[in-house]
Design a protein around this nucleic acid. Structure first.
Ligand code: FES
Ligand code: FES
Lengths: 144, 144
DNA sequence: AGAAATTCGGATAAATTTATCCTGTTTATG
DNA sequence: CATAAACAGGATAAATTTATCCGAATTTCT
């Protein structure tokens, strides 16, 4: 569904959001530990997220990553996915034709579009804030 | 969503089904041309489909691939996907945790499961037969 | 029987994704 | 000001997926 990079990116954003809500800034090392991801690869992804203004990075000693509380409410999963995987989730054809195109549809087009729209709505409505709620009360997890 | 191999596999199966309904057996070369896929790679995928009894292959001159008419009615897209991509569509977690697990769910679990079930139902209900109907009348396409 | 058309399967190569390493820069702190 | 902690970014490596090549086996047709 999503690339590994994107999965790590989402999990990392969720963890940063969770800690930012408590006023804590977190280091790359801590993030990678808490979401069970490879450190250096996660660094690359966080750079992307930082460039895309999804997370704030602070250099230097006592630096790390954080997300402003206002942003945590506003940022939707769709923005994270877009920053890392681009728009292929939205424009891709289920059977791999160049782009999904209703004028020359593949045989699964109608059914696939329904599923994709479903996914799209989910991603566009789910905020980081919403995602952290289960983490706070311990009903959802970022690693096992 | 699906691997390239799987996309080619689905498109190839659809083309073979389309021709089989007219009593025609088709060669690898023709298939690859008609679905716009790399010949040798498509050969590998057809081998897999053949081993999984999704298509019949006939060796030798005038050989090629075909699917029995009875089978065209019965075979669902889910079987093709399973033969090539395995069950990761069904058991995978949206955020990349080892396996989707309702007992220790990731933050998107509930929403993701809904989408996945949607996809699953689609794949399990769509038969090759149904897929060929649009191709026959020219309202759907396997390449552009 | 011989030639041609075709799939099968193993080996290999190219491309992409995932992951690591290392050096440089920034910044808090003592 | 020196040091240590931390991110940034380029180069590189490993793993996986995608793709190609080629010889062998099978079958039809002349
Ligand atoms: S054309 Fe294939 S999904 Fe729209
Ligand atoms: S645990 Fe992540 S989708 Fe079910």
């Amino acid at each position: 569904m999503f690339s590994k990079a994107c999965e790590y990116g989402i999990r990392a954003s969720m963890y940063i959001a969770l800690q930012s809500l408590e006023g804590k800034r977190v280091s790359l090392k801590e993030i990678a530990e808490e979401i069970d991801s490879p450190v250096a690869f996660t660094a690359k992804i966080l750079q992307q997220l930082s460039r895309n203004k999804i997370v704030d990075s602070v250099k230097g000693s006592a630096g790390g990553f954080q997300i402003e509380k206002e942003q945590i409410k506003k940022i939707k999963l769709s923005e994270i996915v877009y920053a890392i995987d681009g728009d292929n989730v939205y424009v891709g054809c289920g059977l791999g034709l160049k782009k999904c195109n209703a004028n020359k549809p593949c045989p699964v087009h109608d059914k696939f579009v329904a599923i994709r729209d479903n996914l799209k709505n989910m991603l566009e409505s789910a905020s980081l804030q919403e995602m952290t709620e289960g983490l706070e009360v311990g009903t959802t997890y970022l690693k096992r």
